[in-house]
């Protein structure tokens, strides 16, 4: 199958690709709807905590006093975390991809506490990152 400008287009797609694509997209949307119900903010805050922990380990590199995610997070206010997310170019997927979850056994009680104290305003601010009406040029 080809683009409408056949004589100009060298790109092709597998046979039947556009017949299957809508179903793949609808399945992704359904999956996302299910994931949204499972606390999306939890993943973001967890990932930020993991990043901060790794950063602290690199900077302080003191093996005699390991820093836990809870200890580290206790020094960072919720407002700072939100500001960090709003300002940075980082996204959840990037952070999760960078972290080796098998080597870091975090306990998330403190994170649950933070998440439960998020206001609607806080959530809106974070979700502002995902606004499609971004300035392009």
């Amino acid at each position: 199958m080809e683009d409408k400008n056949t004589n100009k287009n060298i790109y092709k797609v597998p046979e039947g690709y556009f017949d299957q694509l809508p179903d793949k997209i609808i399945a992704r949307v359904e999956a996302q709807k299910s994931n949204k119900k499972i606390r999306p903010l939890y993943a973001v805050v967890s990932a930020v905590a993991a990043s901060l922990l790794i950063l602290a380990m690199v900077i302080f590199n003191d093996t005699s006093q390991p820093v836990s995610a809870e200890e580290l997070l206790s020094t960072v206010s919720t407002a700072d975390l939100i500001d960090y997310l709003a300002e940075s170019d980082i996204n959840t997927e990037d952070i999760i991809n960078e972290v080796d979850w098998t080597e870091n056994n975090f306990e998330f009680d403190e994170l649950d506490y933070i998440e439960n104290n998020m206001t609607e305003e806080d959530l809106d601010q974070i979700m502002g990152d995902f606004d499609p009406d971004l300035e392009l040029i």
Partner: peptide, 12 residues
């Protein structure tokens, strides 16, 4: 990318 785009369209 096309799948991501349509998911984003749905979300927004």
């Amino acid at each position: 990318l096309v799948q991501d785009i349509f998911v984003k369209i749905y979300s927004n």
